[in-house]
């Protein structure tokens, strides 16, 4: 049984179908990259996994437990499924340390001292310990995103969802953030990434899914998808990415 099971998930906004029957299995310690054009449903798929978007039909299981449908404790689910956003979404009225310790102290049942100690440890790992007292607006995009990753890790989630986390960054800051994700992958954290960084996907992904108009059109190892795509749509998409110099 896979750690994360997504089974025939549908999602509509009104009459517009964003997801049309997506199924995906992710094992522990896997890194799955979701690629595809804007609007193909990558972000929505990630947001259904931690129930930020309710689904219209289908079922999602995390660690054997069904996490969709009524009656699910979404707050407990979300402490177990961390998320990092494209636009960082740090809380601007809180310092870096407060951003990171908020969830552990308020809902994780961890004492303040312990939470701060762990937060500083994590910040140290991403080279942000000396910015613990700073406010988000005083940080660069890359620094904010590193803090956002630490904030998501602070509740010790078993899965991390990364939603185009480098898309809003200046090119010279992308490397730092990807370096951290690379380390997390090496540590064996289960991750799902929606990304446009094809080179990076190729390097870290154990599985690559190409989404097109709300369904997974093609799925396989990084090598398989990038070297020998079977679907015409995948070839077209990768061709366009290649032409724009992003591969």
């Amino acid at each position: 049984m896979a750690f994360l099971e997504i089974d025939d998930v549908h999602k509509s906004y009104g009459s517009f179908q964003v997801l049309r029957g997506v199924s995906l299995e992710v094992n522990k310690h896997e890194v799955v990259c979701l690629i595809g054009a804007s609007g193909s449903g990558k972000s929505t798929l990630l947001r259904t996994i931690n129930a930020l978007e309710p689904i219209s039909a289908g079922r999602i299981k995390v660690d054997g437990d069904v996490v969709t449908g009524p009656g699910v404790d979404v707050n407990r689910l979300r402490r177990n499924v961390g998320m990092v956003f494209q636009s960082y979404n740090l809380f601007p009225h809180m310092s870096v340390l407060q951003n990171v310790t908020l969830a552990p102290t308020k809902v994780g049942g961890v004492g303040r001292a312990e939470a701060e100690e762990r937060a500083l440890e994590l910040l140290e790992r991403v080279g942000m310990r000396d910015k613990a007292g700073s406010y988000p607006d005083a940080l660069s995009g890359g620094q904010q995103q590193r803090v956002a990753i630490v904030r998501a890790l602070a509740t010790s989630p078993q899965v991390l969802l990364l939603d185009e986390i480098t898309a809003a960054l200046d090119p010279e800051l992308v490397g730092d953030v990807l370096g951290i994700v690379r380390e997390l992958a090496a540590d064996g954290l289960t991750m799902l990434l929606a990304t446009h960084e094809m080179g990076f996907a190729r390097e870290v992904a154990s599985q690559v899914c190409f989404l097109h108009q709300g369904s997974i059109l093609e799925r396989g190892s990084a090598e398989q998808i990038f070297e020998d795509p079977q679907e015409e749509r995948t070839r077209q998409f990768l061709g366009r990415v290649l032409a724009s110099g992003r591969l």
Binding site: N75, R76, R79, M83, F85, F91, A103, V107, T155
Partner: peptide, 9 residues
């Protein structure tokens, strides 16, 4: 979204 994704009610 950020706050809810951390498990805050």
């Amino acid at each position: 979204a950020a706050a809810r994704s951390l498990g805050l009610s």
